[in-house]
Design a protein around this nucleic acid. Sequence first.
RNA 1: CCGGGUGUGGCGAAGUUUGGUAUCGCGCUUGAAUGGGGUUCAAGAGGCCGCUAGUUCGAAUCUAGUCACUCGGACCA
Length: 478
Amino acid sequence: MAKDKKVEQITDMETDFAQWYTDVCKKAELIDYSGVKGMFIYRPYGYAIWENIQRILDAMFKEKGHENLYMPMLIPESLLQKEKDHVEGFAPECAWVTVGGQDKLEERLCIRPTSETLFCEHFRYIIHSWRDLPKLYNQWCSVLRWEKTSRPFLRHREFLWQEGHTMHASQEEAMRETEQQLDVYADFCENYLAMPVVRGQKTDKEKFSGAERTYAIECMMHDRKALQAGTSHYFGDGFSRAFDIHYTDKNNQQSFPFQTSWGLSTRLIGGIIMTHGDNNGLVLPPRVAPTQLVVIPVAMHKEGVLDAARAVANRLKDAGIRVKIDESEQSPGWKFAEHEMKGVPLRLELGPKDIEQAQCVLVRRDSGEKRFVALDELETLVPQLLEAVQQGLFDKAKKNLTDNTFPAQSLEEAKRLQEENGGFIKTMWCGEEACELRMKEEAGMSSRCMPFAQEHLGEHCAICGKPAKKMIYWGVAY
RNA sequence: CCGGGUGUGGCGAAGUUUGGUAUCGCGCUUGAAUGGGGUUCAAGAGGCCGCUAGUUCGAAUCUAGUCACUCGGACCA
């Protein structure tokens, strides 16, 4: 009965994955709906995850020499229109400011959907000599895209992200930057979020508006659908020319610099939920969990229990663990369920019986494994357990990815595999957009990426039979 | 934007077919006992039934309009 009651708040993922996802977002207090469609409230616990992501990534960016700055949120229409492909790609989902105070504006202002154009205008003013390069910039901000449908974390009209924008003297250097930042993203996803990725290049159809090349990391969710977790773009000198950003190079020649941009958003939190979560709720990777261990005093009004629990919490805090002690007036069982729902990686139970024996109970969120531990050992054991949870989550997600990636030799086979199992289907491909459209039309899958780790699955395109150029991954995407 | 569904205390629902002045569960408040998987008992507070207009002696219930949310589809660097 008690067991049943615990799960009644969250729909089983096997019953309805979409509903399960929404339940977790709400019940774990990550997010809430606001009065405006597609605009969400990041609640403290959800925002804390983002803060951890920011803290870690920001350090990684700076390690590679990037500097943070902040650009305005409004873009004059004329500026947005300078690069043709870019404006065509974004125009359908722009929101506009047309009135200021009482007055209609002479030129309407776009609320940034991304900031390439603003950066370009700025770069034009500050890049004049080869000595001004490279410029390695990043900003943390929110952007606005007027999506028709929205889902918590996965598709907001306003969402939080970071966008890196860099300028380089040579094509090679800019390409290296594009690849390097994709690697930073992949490293972060795998080692901090425990989400294994497939790295690769996007097809022309799927690439960023105005980019020459788009690289992406693709992750597989628990329901075997794909989530694009981060992208890194190489622009060549297209925007430089469109915005007339030029400088004098070492040979006293006028040159156009080469540009990149790369971005990653709060969508990742949706990825964490759908990669690691289970029917009891959220499961957080220890490295980004706002609380890594929760201390639950049992029979806490009995003499000495609370003091002992606080002492243990403080010791672990001193050992560098993010600890929370739950002293609220709820029954222990209620607290167990609550913190499970919120995905806290480790739970420490401490009651009168334990105190007598100088021990406590440690429970892993990922496996449910429960063990008695001597209080002396906590400082050494807790970090080890957190690492074990982190690794356990990665291994499980990795298995899901490998077990659900299949080669196919024909469109029919790809379609059948998708219908029967889902997941990623890999085929050879001729490079024609027509084949991508056909795959979408007949099998419901879009191209995910052409992985850097290419495999030779055959000579011919699985869709049209013409000579193949690349091995490509297909999937149903979020 | 196209189609389906739903709007009733904070949340989830019943009541709508056949009009008669709103019911239940959870949560909340107070008190007591409990405490190792959502603890129990007692006493309370809280709603002009999404909004507007109409029909009627009388509307949560019928009619028209409107708004919001939601699920599919289309769209989505």
